[in-house]
């Protein structure tokens, strides 16, 4: 493979990295190939020793995506890390995507439940207004208790969510090591 093709494939494989970072990586490899050729090695031979551009890109992306997922925590960053992890191996559809969907659904379920619970005093007030129902103290207190419980649960789940995010990243890293460890 010629240098242009190698760099082009590498660039393409790195397409979801920031422009600046991608250019820097391309320059690094260009410098490497030029130095090797400058010392009398054949271009094709050097490039074949570098390995597949897609493989290199995978390694670089895995490092950088996990880094940014740790630094600035957001759903997008997390989804990127998840996608990178799925691209490592077909088995990760079972090992990563399955648990991820399960845990995420469970978490959202709990979060929704606790938010609805927090709203119970409003539901109580609303029904009182709309249906001209008789004020029942027991119901009123019940709604207050359920409401505070809901607020506390929501707050707890919010913090638990952050922990869950970090734990998932640790799992993804561990999984990456297992998957890539012996492969090259």
């Amino acid at each position: 493979m010629r240098q242009e093709l190698f760099l082009q494939r590498l660039k393409h494989a790195l397409s979801n990295l920031p422009e600046e970072e991608r250019e820097e990586i391309i320059l690094d490899y260009k410098e490497y190939i030029d130095s090797a050729v400058g010392e009398g090695r054949g271009e094709e031979e050097v490039i074949s020793h570098l390995g597949k551009p897609e493989k290199i890109a995978q390694e670089i992306k895995a490092e950088t995506i996990w880094d940014s997922a740790e630094k600035d925590r957001s759903v997008t960053q997390f989804l990127r890390a998840l996608a990178a992890s799925l691209s490592i191996s077909f088995f990760n559809i079972i090992l990563v995507l399955g648990p991820a969907v399960g845990v995420f659904t469970l978490y959202v379920g709990f979060l929704m439940g606790s938010i609805v619970l927090s709203l119970s005093p409003f539901v109580f007030g609303f029904s009182l207004l709309m249906e001209n129902a008789v004020f029942i103290p027991a119901e009123f207190f019940l709604s207050i208790v359920l409401g505070s419980l809901g607020v506390m649960l929501t707050m707890g789940l919010w913090f638990a969510g952050k922990k869950l995010y970090l734990l998932s990243l640790i799992y993804l890293r561990f999984n990456k090591k297992m998957m890539m460890g012996e492969s090259h």
Partner: peptide
């Protein structure tokens, strides 16, 4: 040292895939 020089010096003793050096340097 620069990248290529470093790779050569390492490969004098240890057999590595040349392409994996830059991801490490970046980290």
């Amino acid at each position: 040292r620069y990248g290529y020089e470093l790779a050569q010096d390492i490969m004098g003793s240890i057999n590595i895939a040349e392409g994996t050096l830059y991801p490490l340097l970046r980290r």
